[in-house]
Amino acid sequence: MSIQHFRVALIPFFAAFCLPVFAHPETLVKVKDAEDQLGARVGYIELDLNSGKILESFRPEERFPMMSTFKVLLCGAVLSRVDAGQEQLGRRIHYSQNDLVEYSPVTEKHLTDGMTVRELCSAAITMSDNTAANLLLTTIGGPKELTAFLHNMGDHVTRLDRWEPELNEAIPNDERDTTMPAAMATTLRKLLTGELLTLASRQQLIDWMEADKVAGPLLRSALPAGWFIADKSGAGERGSRGIIAALGPDGKPSRIVVIYTTGSQATMDERNRQIAEIGASLIKHW
C-alpha cells in the first residue's frame, strides 16, 4: 500500500482519535458579512469528516447552483462504474471539434489522439474542462443518470439537468442544476469515506481534487503551510461562485467545507476574496 493510499485508508482512524471539535460562531459572522459585502445569498456548511456531524452552517438547506462543483460527483459516478466493471479508466475516447464547448483548455489539445477516461476526469476536476465533463456525462448516460446515481446514494436534493455550459445559467428560483450545502457536503463525505467506492477509487477521487489547479484564489489562499486540501470550485452566471473541499491540518483532511453564493453584482475577484476570507476565519478558529 502506498503512503497516499495509507493516508486515505486511515482518515477515519486518525479522526477518531482527534480531540473533540467545537464550532466557532466567528466564522458564521464572516459568512454573514460576506453576504453584506456581496449583496447576495451565501450558503455555508462545515462537517466533521469522521462523524458527519454538522459543526457550523448557514442557509444549509437553500438551493444554490452547483456550477462546476458537480464534476466531482460526476467522476465519482464514473469511478463507481469502474468498480462495477462497467468502465475502464484506460479506455480512450475520441471526439471532434464539434464536441468542444466553451472553456476546454485540455480537451482542445487532444482532438487528434483523444483522451482516456482517467485523463478526462483529471481534466474535468483539476482544470474544470467543460468538454471533458460533457464527454464523461455521455459515458454514464447524461445528466439524468448522474441525478439517479445521487438518488441511489441517498441524495434526493442534488440534481443535474443540463450539460456544460448551460448548467451554469443560475436563474433565480430555478431548481435545475442545483444542490443544497448540506446535501453536497453529505454526498461528498460519502464519496470520500464511505463504502460506495473502493479504496482505490476513493484515493483516485481525492487525488484529482488535491491536484486542483484553478481554485488557488479561494480556500487555498488562506491555508497555512502543512495543511491538506482537496477541492473543486465552480463559477456561473449572475454572480455565482462555489467551492467544495476536504481539508485539515497535519497533512490530512478532517472536515468537509461547502460554500456557495449566487445573485451578486460583485466582480469575480471580490467573490473570490470573500470566500478566501471565510476560509481564513475557519482556519483561525479551527
Rank of each mutant, 00 (worst) to 15 (best):
N98H: 00
L47E: 09
G226T: 03
K30E: 10
D83A: 10
S96Y: 00
S201Q: 15
L150F: 13
A266M: 15
T147K: 08
E195Q: 12
E62H: 00
G251I: 11
R176T: 10
L120Q: 00
R273L: 07
V82A: 12
G279F: 04
S128I: 09
L79T: 15
T69K: 00
H151R: 04
A77M: 00
H94Y: 15
R176F: 09
D83S: 11
N98T: 01
M184I: 08
T116K: 15
V82R: 14
L218N: 11
M180V: 09
T131M: 10
N152W: 13
E195M: 00
C75F: 09
A276D: 13
S254L: 06
M115F: 10
T27N: 08
T139R: 06
L28H: 15
L111V: 01
Q97A: 12
P165W: 03
R189T: 11
C121R: 01
K284E: 09
A230I: 09
V72T: 10
A123N: 15
I125K: 00
R176A: 12
A280L: 04
L191T: 07
G216L: 05
P172S: 08
V258Y: 13
S128V: 04
T186P: 09
K232L: 06
S281R: 08
W227K: 03
A170W: 09
A230M: 12
P165D: 04
D99E: 12
T261S: 10
E119K: 03
W227Q: 14
M115V: 10
T193D: 04
R91Y: 14
P249D: 05
I229G: 04
A276V: 11
Q274I: 05
A34W: 13
L79H: 15
T27I: 13
G236L: 04
G76Y: 04
N134M: 11
L219A: 06
K252R: 09
I125E: 01
R59Q: 03
D212E: 06
L219I: 08
A276C: 08
E119R: 12
P181Q: 01
Y95F: 06
R241V: 05
L223Y: 14
R220D: 07
G194E: 10
L137E: 06
T187R: 01
P65H: 04
A170R: 06
M66Y: 00
T126R: 02
M209T: 09
I278P: 12
W208P: 09
R159C: 02
R176C: 14
L188N: 02
D177K: 07
A40N: 02
G43E: 01
L100A: 09
R41Q: 14
R91C: 14
F228H: 02
A170P: 07
T193F: 06
Y103F: 02
E277C: 14
L205T: 04
G141D: 15
I244V: 14
H151V: 11
L197D: 07
G154C: 03
D129R: 00
W163M: 11
V257E: 04
T198K: 05
P172Q: 12
P105W: 07
N173M: 05
A77H: 00
H285R: 02
E164H: 02
R189N: 15
L120D: 01
R63W: 14
H94I: 08
L188C: 08
I244P: 04
V78Q: 03
W208R: 08
H24K: 15
A148Q: 07
R162V: 10
G239M: 11
D207M: 13
W227V: 04
I54Q: 06
R118F: 14
P253F: 15
L73H: 12
L55T: 10
D161T: 09
L150P: 14
S68Y: 00
L282D: 07
E277Y: 13
S51A: 07
E145F: 11
I171D: 02
I283H: 07
T139G: 05
L100D: 04
M184F: 10
V29Y: 12
R189K: 07
D174P: 03
I45W: 00
F228D: 12
V258M: 04
L135E: 02
